[in-house]
Each structure stands twice: as C-alpha cells, then as structure tokens.
C-alpha cells in the first residue's frame, strides 16, 4: 500500500513539474489533457466493452484481437498507454489478473486500481492460491472450470471478458453493462444477475 503523503510532497511535485516544463519535456496542456483522461477512466468503460462483446460478435472479435483498437473505438485515447489485451473466459477456463511485481492494471479502461489489487497479500496469493483467493471473495466457479492466472509482468495490460450469465437473455447494452463490475473485469468476481427480490 502506498504511504501517506508527506507534508513536503506537494512542494516536491510542483518543483518536478516546473523542471519538466522548463526543460520542455511537458507542457501545461499535456498535463491537463492527461489529468482529464485519467479522471474520465473508470471501469464503466471496460464494462461497456464487455456488454457490447456479449451482443455483437464482430465487436467481440475486435476486442479479443486488439484490445487497444477496441478501446480507441470506445473513445478512449490509448496514445502512450500500454497495449490492452483481453482474456476470454470460457465454460472451461476462468481468468484471474494480478501483477505480482507491482500493480500493473488496465487503467485506461478500468480507472484507478482498488487498494487490494496493490496489496502484498493479493499479489502473493493470487498467483499461488487462486482458488483460495476466489473462495474468500465468495466467487464459486462451476465444477470442472480451470483457472488461468495472468501475471501482468511487463508491457501489456490485461482485462477479462467474463461469460455472460444466464438470465440476461434479451437485455440491452446498458443493462448488461450494469452487471459487469470492476472486480469481474479482473476475474475476482463473476457478473451476477440481481435476484428478483433485489430488483426495485
């Protein structure tokens, strides 16, 4: 987990930004654009990419063959971002994403990683005991399903395309998007159809 900001941190950040500007490495406009892009990024983008893949086979092919191009097609600027790879769950195989070395995460389409994703506990255990980790999340995989842990060690960022759950037949894109959570997009959870009593 990251340490709390020290009192001198803001001053140090200002000095760094000033130096980068003076040396012509960074402009105010670039900084503002990147901040806006970072603020816009949220897991709803990834969720919509998944919902669309459940509805449109052609989009699904694009998503699986070139995640970055799919993100661009969603209006996400991938310039300077690491390439996005998308991992397709099947009835036989579930994907779980971790970065054991640091905290690589598909920020462009999921936003900031949650704190647990960066914790030593998750990073150490997901790769060694993925079934134990999933059980603690309350995620039960169907009998016979194998797990493929994807350790995000280098230059790609990985997102999961989960299975479309039964009970969602006939749903439109917005409704499908609403059940794809951030946690499902890295594989610690599965998309859940709300029970009828819960649906208001």
């Amino acid at each position: 987990m990251s340490a709390p900001a020290r009192p001198d941190s803001p001053a140090r950040l200002e000095a760094l930004i000033g130096a980068l500007k003076t040396k012509g490495i960074l402009t105010e406009e670039e900084l503002t654009a990147r901040q806006a892009q970072t603020d816009r990024a949220s897991s709803e983008i990834g969720a919509r990419m998944v919902a669309r893949a459940w509805l449109d086979p052609e989009w699904r092919r694009l998503l699986l063959s070139d995640g970055s191009a799919a993100a661009e097609a969603m209006g996400v600027s991938m310039a300077g971002a690491p390439p996005l790879g998308v991992l397709e769950d099947t009835p036989q195989r579930h994907h779980l994403v971790v970065c054991t070395l640091c905290s690589c995460y598909p920020r462009a389409v999921l936003g900031y990683p949650p704190h647990w994703y960066k914790s030593f506990a998750y990073r150490a255990r997901a790769v060694r005991d993925p079934r134990g980790v999933l059980a603690e999340w309350g995620t039960a995989l169907p009998e016979g399903m194998e797990i493929r842990v994807v350790d995000s060690t280098a230059d790609y960022r990985w997102m999961v395309l989960p299975l479309r759950p039964p009970g969602t037949e006939g749903w439109a894109e917005d409704r499908l998007t609403s059940i794809v959570t951030r946690d499902a997009l890295v594989g610690v959870a599965l998309p859940q159809v709300p029970s009828p009593t819960m649906a208001a």
Partner: peptide, 27 residues
C-alpha cells in the same frame, strides 16, 4: 521480443489444482 508463456501452476508450488495455469509475459 516479449512472449506470453504458459506454465502449469501445480509444479511451481507443489500444490494447487491440476489443470490450473499461469500465463506470464517474459522477454
């Protein structure tokens, strides 16, 4: 060159579920 390399999970840790795998980027 960066490759995606697939490993059986069980032999790495001497524990785990047969059939489970780990997929890793390696130069």
């Amino acid at each position: 060159e960066l490759y995606h390399v697939l490993f059986e999970q069980n032999p790495i840790w001497n524990e785990g579920h047969p059939g489970d795998e780990v997929l890793v980027e390696i130069f």
